[in-house]
């Protein structure tokens, strides 16, 4: 802790509810209110439902304890389809968006004619409503009317029923997610690139280092802290992806592309069992909380090593 931090942090009166405490609490008060009423309260409502027999048709709400949790945790669909799907989705989406985002940031960090135009085009996915983009992508991969099949047939290949097969549907969803999130990575990494100090690069230029070596041994290690923030935030978001999958495949064909949010939604509204859906959501939340801590630890160590 630096001296200045210690001063701001120093209790002025040694009382439990002194001036410093009051200031801290006032600072977080509005946010705490928002969280309490619009996040914690709904979550508790959902948690309460997950311990009861509460289908939407029959709201008797008898307490059944962990019944729904046992059901979900012993459901083959959850263990062998939903969980692997979610983890693969998370890993591939984050890894590919990060790599592509890094390339784009490196390109945009150079000076060339038309750079501003290219940057605006690359940010297009941030400007289109994701639901519209997803509807459009589903349409493009339609087996009868889609432009993708039309293009394949035009060059002599046979079209595929993209959304009727498990892995091709999964690939389309992944592609849409990567398309949607790469600009976000590129933006953050570009901001990171532009705030790097110039001196090491000048030194490398004098030493005659090749562009690749400069990138590999200077840029990449110095970007690690930004990359860690990006990965941590995006990994959590990817785990709970809902709208893209819902719009493109709704978990089909035959529930084979369900991620865990879709599983919870389907259990709650298609199978009309709100309690079971809530239990699934709680299990997913527990998994991601633990997973996020692991990711954070590993990434932090990775940053420490680079220092």
């Amino acid at each position: 802790m630096t001296i200045s931090e210690a001063e701001l942090d120093r209790p002025r009166k040694p009382s439990l509810f002194g001036e410093r405490q009051r200031f801290m609490l006032l600072l977080i008060l509005p946010a705490a209110f928002g969280l309490a009423f619009f996040q914690i309260l709904p979550i508790l409502t959902g948690a309460n439902a997950s311990f009861r027999d509460w289908s939407l048709h029959d709201p008797k709400m008898t307490w059944v304890g962990l019944k729904h949790y046992f059901y979900v945790l012993s459901d083959d669909g959850f263990l062998k389809v939903v969980l692997p799907n979610t983890l693969v989705f998370m890993a591939v989406s984050v890894a590919v968006s990060l790599l592509l985002g890094l390339c784009l940031a490196a390109i945009l960090n150079r000076k060339f004619a038309g750079r501003a135009v290219l940057q605006t085009i690359l940010l297009l996915p941030l400007m289109v409503a994701p639901v519209v983009a997803a509807i459009m992508i589903r349409w493009m991969f339609n087996d009868q009317f889609g432009v993708v099949n039309a293009a394949l047939e035009a060059v002599g290949l046979s079209g595929q029923p993209w959304l009727a097969q498990r892995w091709s549907a999964f690939a389309v969803i992944l592609m849409a997610d990567i398309w949607l999130w790469t600009p976000w990575f590129a933006l953050l990494l570009l901001a990171g690139l532009q705030s790097l100090p110039r001196e090491p690069f000048e030194a490398a230029a004098i030493d005659g280092a090749s562009p690749w070596r400069v990138f590999r041994f200077l840029t990449l290690p110095m970007l690690r802290p930004v990359m860690v923030v990006c990965i941590a935030i995006r990994a959590i978001d990817a785990f709970r992806t809902f709208d893209i999958v819902w719009t493109i495949s709704a978990g089909g064909p035959a529930r084979s592309t369900e991620l865990f949010s879709i599983y919870a939604y389907n259990e709650a509204f298609q199978a009309m069992n709100f309690a079971r859906g809530s239990a699934a959501a709680m299990i997913g939340a527990a998994i991601i909380v633990v997973l996020a801590m692991v990711i954070f630890r590993v990434l932090n160590r990775w940053v420490e090593v680079s220092k």
Partner: peptide
């Protein structure tokens, strides 16, 4: 709270 999936609080949010 950042980790809690939307789906587990959007549904109850409707009732709230």
């Amino acid at each position: 709270l950042r980790c809690v999936p939307y789906i587990s609080w959007v549904l109850p949010l409707f009732f709230v």
